Simulated assay, not measured.
Amino acid sequence: MFNGKFLTPCFKSKQPWKRLLSTQPSVVLAMSGGVDSSVSAALLKQQGYKVQGVYMRNWDSLDEVGHCTSKADWEDVQKVCSILDIECSQVDFVKEYWNNVFEKTLTDYAQGVTPNPDIGCNSFIKFGSLLDKIPEGTWFATGHYCRTNNGKLLRGLERNKDQSYYLSTVPEAALRRTLFPLGEIESKVKVKQLATDFGLLDIAKKKESMGICFVGQKRKFASFLQEYIDQPPGPVIDLDSGKVIGQHEGLYGYTIGQASRICHGSHKWFVADKLLDQNKLVCVAGSNHPALFSDTLVAKNWTWIHHQIPTLPVQVDAQVRYRQSPEKAILSQTPDGQYALRFTHPIRAIARGQQVVVWDQDWCLGGGVIDAVL
């Protein structure tokens, strides 16, 4: 029996997640209201599972300009589950999300680094608080594009949508309990076609969410952070000349490698560094300035997903961002226990706080938080 607090049970489920005496294997599916988790629900039911959908409520305040889509997404989850004739419930993780993900995100931005809250949400909420409430013997499932094999995390066949990067901190024990129904599907187009075939026409046409719920769909991230982080404006410095070329609105609102929105001369200026102790933003002219490239980084808080840790140093495929082609690099351990990666070719815009993730071909080994760029 699920031992968590539910906000809203749905349809015929008076006791959500209670395992029925049945020969059907049970699976609890994390549902978002989007096409990926909806098709996952249909596929699991088609494969003979007793599917129970759950929608996680992680945020509870309205956005000033747009709004968090949580209410509409929950309504879509209920519609999908009604069409598929499966049970669903909503569970509240607002407190857990605030304490374990949101506050850390704010702290990181205030300290001048660039975190990835999606990785934190998977680690602490979806594969943490949520999975902890699912009884042993019941499968867990998500709509991520990835695969597993004996606890190993593998890239999804749809390489353009592969999401193993976001699961690089999920431990092997959790992966052994998890199903990824979309892992073997080779294209997003096929997923949308399946949604139509399963009678989920509205979901098939639904626009894919690209933002973070607590920011809202129509709002700039920097303006959102301004409400929580008190940092004064300061000078913008041209790295090459050392001259002041403008003023920034708070260092938290800038990411290494991004266009700075600074108007000075005929150049387009890009962020090369943030000097927190001096409250200075350092920029360079042009998106391919040499200062934006580096071939070495050091990472902390490293997670090895599987117990088969490779002998170091070792050549791996590595990514410092989700939307990046894998690059060859040599992974080694530093004398103080951190991990260093030296890339074969310099990588653009490596930022402290980002997650670097490594693979052995399709096998995701794990990753860590970038602590230094050399």
Rank of each mutant, 00 (worst) to 15 (best):
residue 104 K to Y: 12
residue 58 N to F: 14
residue 42 A to D: 01
residue 119 I to E: 10
residue 108 D to S: 11
residue 94 V to L: 05
residue 77 V to E: 02
residue 114 T to W: 04
residue 59 W to K: 03
residue 128 G to D: 02
residue 127 F to L: 01
residue 117 P to R: 09
residue 143 G to Y: 08
residue 39 V to W: 01
residue 60 D to T: 03
residue 94 V to Q: 08
residue 80 V to I: 07
residue 35 V to H: 08
residue 105 T to M: 15
residue 58 N to W: 12
residue 95 K to A: 10
residue 94 V to D: 06
residue 63 D to I: 12
residue 135 P to T: 11
residue 69 T to C: 15
residue 38 S to T: 04
residue 85 D to G: 08
residue 109 Y to N: 11
residue 105 T to P: 02
residue 99 N to I: 09
residue 51 V to M: 01
residue 75 E to R: 02
residue 93 F to A: 03
residue 58 N to A: 12
residue 41 A to F: 05
residue 31 M to K: 02
residue 130 L to C: 08
residue 97 Y to K: 04
residue 41 A to H: 09
residue 86 I to F: 03
residue 118 D to Y: 04
residue 126 K to G: 05
residue 115 P to M: 09
residue 66 G to N: 15
residue 59 W to C: 07
residue 79 K to L: 09
residue 34 G to K: 00
residue 42 A to E: 01
residue 47 Q to K: 13
residue 38 S to I: 05
residue 144 H to N: 13
residue 119 I to R: 02
residue 87 E to F: 00
residue 101 V to A: 00
residue 52 Q to H: 14
residue 54 V to T: 07
residue 67 H to T: 10
residue 129 S to K: 13
residue 40 S to C: 03
residue 34 G to P: 01
residue 121 C to L: 10
residue 142 T to L: 10
residue 150 N to Q: 13
residue 57 R to P: 00
residue 87 E to I: 01
residue 130 L to M: 13
residue 110 A to Q: 15
residue 88 C to Q: 04
residue 95 K to Q: 11
residue 107 T to P: 04
residue 145 Y to F: 15
residue 45 K to M: 07
residue 103 E to P: 00
residue 126 K to Q: 01
residue 85 D to P: 05
residue 143 G to T: 06
residue 54 V to P: 01
residue 37 S to A: 08
residue 64 E to Y: 11
residue 142 T to G: 07
residue 84 L to W: 10
residue 115 P to D: 12
residue 43 L to I: 06
residue 145 Y to T: 14
residue 34 G to I: 00
residue 70 S to D: 00
residue 102 F to L: 08
residue 87 E to K: 07
residue 121 C to R: 04
residue 94 V to C: 15
residue 140 F to Q: 09
residue 74 W to I: 02
residue 74 W to K: 06
residue 35 V to R: 06
residue 127 F to S: 02
residue 47 Q to E: 09
residue 50 K to T: 00
residue 32 S to M: 09
residue 129 S to H: 14
